[in-house]
Design a protein around this nucleic acid. Structure first.
Lengths: 335, 335
DNA sequence: AATAATCATGTGAACGTTCACATATAAGTT
DNA sequence: AACTTATATGTGAACGTTCACATGATTATT
């Protein structure tokens, strides 16, 4: 019995219910200013026509889109993917829809494109996953037509709205634990240092060694991949580095390094202790199970939406950086 | 010198350039029907006012939103995350924006919510990552207000527009290879069987054994996680299963299984051969490097957008299922 | 030189909502 | 009984575009 009107409008419903379009509008917006009697009649008409409010028209009229955008760099990576999940969940809970935009490369053209898009989009706020050091982000922030932006995984102590996990602290936790358990030759495999988290973790390692009057033995830079961890570990040994422990900037590289060390006849943890970062779900099943610094990326994503919503409600409340704390998870890759 | 009008409109630009709004509209839409002279004048005004066309208004007037939606189940998993990346890339290349919606649980309420949202959204098409067997998807498809939908990772031989990777074939590739290299006791750890890919892989394994007149030795079901692979391998042995090879439905479970087997004193590949599925980037750095069936999820995502765009252009062209082929990648976890 | 065709521009009404009012009826106060 | 107040509804103009058409100026055709 459902008349198949392509898309019923407010007016179609009004006509069928014998009221004005405004009354229908009141019904769908839960206005108290409408009698129970007519409300029922309208509801029935809505049902009968399978009416759904047109979001576009509504956005145009109210000048509110109820839409957020997430701009991410590298969906392929574990961290960003987890953050996205968190952002989506929180956005949905708050009644916002989510545009999704990924940057594969941080080129000027791609960034430009993204900025222009943002301006056209009628978006109420942006979660920017900005894990890499780049002036392009600043450009985006400046040119964004006053749309609130919350940055994730950016640099520490930055003054604009942002949330980070304290990587320096995380690295300190890892390194200090190794020192406390008797190690004094602690090498490192860092992430790509133009990534904020990689840089912070690296400095945390350096600072902790310094505080304990230890020399930074040796380190190399990887690219987050297991392949690069494998190469890095081999390199370290090739260059004659002596170490009894290894701080590795993420779990994937740790996996690669474990394989390399084994190839070199080194046992873990007997000959070298390892601690990683992230605590990916697989980390417990490395051989040996990996001691690592857990990052709650998903919560990070959720909180970014909370923050954003606060700013949207009151732009004055846009105040600085919030910081989450990582946690050392002890398993069997160290002693 | 830039006057900071919150949002300049077509009319603001028209006034400044001394033309009608329609002329400005022509300019921004690259209509040939405008003299070079006035085009310049308009362009200048646009620049000066920092004008950006309002996407919402345009969508309302043209009844085209230039927006696609991706509905996914489990961003946390490797496959879906990769597909998303592909979808985003292709959508952007085609000039479409992308709404992102994730389902954490396949409950009626969540699905209902998603369907209602779709109807309101003014979206031109939907990529539905539907890796799990559920009637709820059918509901979504039926009630979608005639919006084109392309399903990914759904069941084989289904008649609506969809793209899958041939998991049955993949499993056949894996199992047959083991048989060809001399194995006759081939056990399996499957994924959760209500997942389409898991079911297809499982059947592929069964069918291949049957074709070769071998008995399916034994198998257990995991949940894709490394933890479940670990448990499953232990279980298999606890139950007295005898096998010289193991087909494991994804690489993460393979990782867990490898650890379990080693704990039981079994060497890989000397005592048991292993082949996984997916070829996650870490698979080369398992110990031993994992032989596995590579899935090109990212291409799958891209192609879904191509298909969707075809359907949008010509709804008649919505025809059936397209199939991609997986590939066996030989490494060192078998012999 | 007159007529037709082309080009450059303008005008007003859509698109489907909400917003700011205006109006009519009912109920409450003095 | 007259006057205020509250309640239920309707009216027309926004929102910022595009669309369909109308107009006037230029150029081409016979």
């Amino acid at each position: 019995m459902k008349p198949k009107i392509a898309h019923a409008t407010l007016h179609d419903v009004a006509e069928l219910a014998g009221v004005s379009h405004q009354t229908v509008s009141r019904v769908i917006n839960d206005s108290p200013r409408v009698s129970e009697n007519t409300r029922q009649r309208v509801l029935e008409a809505i049902q009968q026509l399978n009416y759904q409010p047109n979001h576009t028209a509504r956005a145009l009229a109210t000048r509110r889109s109820l839409t957020l955008e997430i701009v991410t760099f590298g969906v392929g990576y574990y961290g960003p993917a987890q953050m996205m999940g968190g952002v989506e969940r929180a956005a949905k809970a708050r009644g916002y829809r989510l545009f999704f935009s990924n940057l594969d490369r941080l080129t000027y053209a791609d960034m430009r494109e993204t900025v222009e898009d943002l301006k056209r989009q009628q978006v109420e706020g942006v979660v920017l996953i900005a894990p890499v050091r780049s002036v392009l982000y600043e450009e985006l922030i400046k040119e964004r037509n006053n749309i609130p932006v919350v940055q994730l995984a950016t640099q520490k102590d930055v003054t604009f709205p942002s949330i980070i996990i304290d990587q320096h602290l995380g690295s300190r936790l890892a390194t200090q634990h190794l020192i406390d358990t008797g190690h004094s030759s602690i090498a490192a495999i860092s992430g790509p240092l133009h990534w904020n988290d990689a840089a912070a973790r690296h400095e945390g390692w350096l600072d902790t060694l310094q505080d304990n009057h230890l020399n930074p033995v040796n380190w190399t830079e990887g690219d987050w991949s297991a392949a690069s961890g494998y190469r890095a570990a081999h390199e370290l040994i090739d260059h004659g580095a002596k170490f009894t422990a290894l701080v590795i900037a993420n779990d994937q590289m740790a996996l690669g390094a474990i394989l390399a060390l084994r190839e070199r006849g080194l046992r873990i943890p007997e000959d070298v202790s390892i601690v990683g970062f992230d605590d990916i779900p697989e980390a417990s099943f490395f051989d040996p199970p990996l001691t690592t610094i857990r990052q709650d990326f998903s919560t990070l994503g959720e909180q970014s939406v909370e923050y954003l919503v606060e700013i949207i409600a009151d732009p004055q409340s846009a105040a600085g950086q919030r910081v989450l704390t990582p946690r050392l998870i002890l398993r069997k890759s160290h002693r």
